[in-house]
């Protein structure tokens, strides 16, 4: 029999990813997504900036929370306080979305309309993916279709920011994957999700800033969207 000496490899990558994820956050993603859809209907029925602010708050919170929960899934499995970590990430990201969305709705209903339209398209695209997965993955059901729709909604509300973040995260993750032996495929995926969440949330913040200075500052910020 062989008695090869055992060694404990260092695993700095996931600790790094975990630290990076903490600023974001989550709580209950699917409820937030549903709340968003409900609130959007409410917003459409409400006249004036207060209604738009309410709709923006709901959409921002749902989008932020979904981005947060997605970003937390892999890094938070590296701690025994996994649920606490994921909830904190979701909650933080949801609050960022809530604040930004409220301001966007209050100051620029047109911008909010664009985000809502993107969210609706994203939900449809995500749900379509979920429907295909339901046919392929044995244990998937309609709640999973709703879940993929919710992730699509979060992405679609800020597509440019989320896509840029996802790309940047995947790029950084790929470089680390090639360069650092202890950096594994889950780390690479985590980097992509964290990037997506960071990009999406940054885009919400930028939208809020732009909405405030709409027509005044003339500052062009690359994450803004115009549909």
């Amino acid at each position: 029999m062989s008695h090869a000496p055992a060694r404990i490899p260092s695993r700095p990558s996931f600790r790094l990813a975990l630290s990076a994820c903490l600023p974001f956050l989550l709580l209950a993603p699917a409820p937030a997504g549903l709340a968003s859809l409900c609130a959007q209907e409410t917003a459409q029925k409400t006249s004036g900036s207060a209604g738009a602010a309410l709709g923006g708050a709901a959409l921002g919170a749902a989008s932020g929370a979904m981005l947060g929960v997605t970003a937390s899934l892999i890094p938070c499995t590296e701690t025994l306080s996994q649920l606490t970590c994921a909830r904190a990430t979701t909650l933080s990201a949801g609050l960022i979305g809530l604040g930004s969305g409220t301001l966007v709705g209050a100051w620029d209903s047109g911008r909010l309309g664009s985000a809502a339209k993107g969210a609706a398209i994203g939900f449809g695209a995500g749900a379509a993916v979920g429907f295909v997965l339901k046919k392929v993955v044995r244990q998937y059901g309609w709640l999973d279709v709703l879940s993929t729709g919710a992730i699509g909604m979060a992405f679609g509300a800020q597509p440019e920011g989320a896509a840029l973040g996802l790309g940047a995260g995947m790029f950084v993750g790929s470089v680390l994957w090639l360069a650092v032996p202890s950096y594994g495929l889950p780390d690479l995926a985590a980097a992509g999700f964290i990037g997506m969440a960071a990009g999406g949330l940054a885009a919400w913040i930028v939208d809020a800033v732009e909405a405030n200075s709409n027509g005044g500052s003339g500052v062009t910020i690359p994450f803004s969207i115009r549909i």
């Binding site: 699917a30 899934l73 994921a86 997965l133 709640l143």
Partner: peptide, 11 residues
């Protein structure tokens, strides 16, 4: 399932 993964924080 994805739904349980999201709502249970992948536990």
């Amino acid at each position: 399932t994805l739904y349980r993964t999201l709502t249970s924080a992948n536990t």
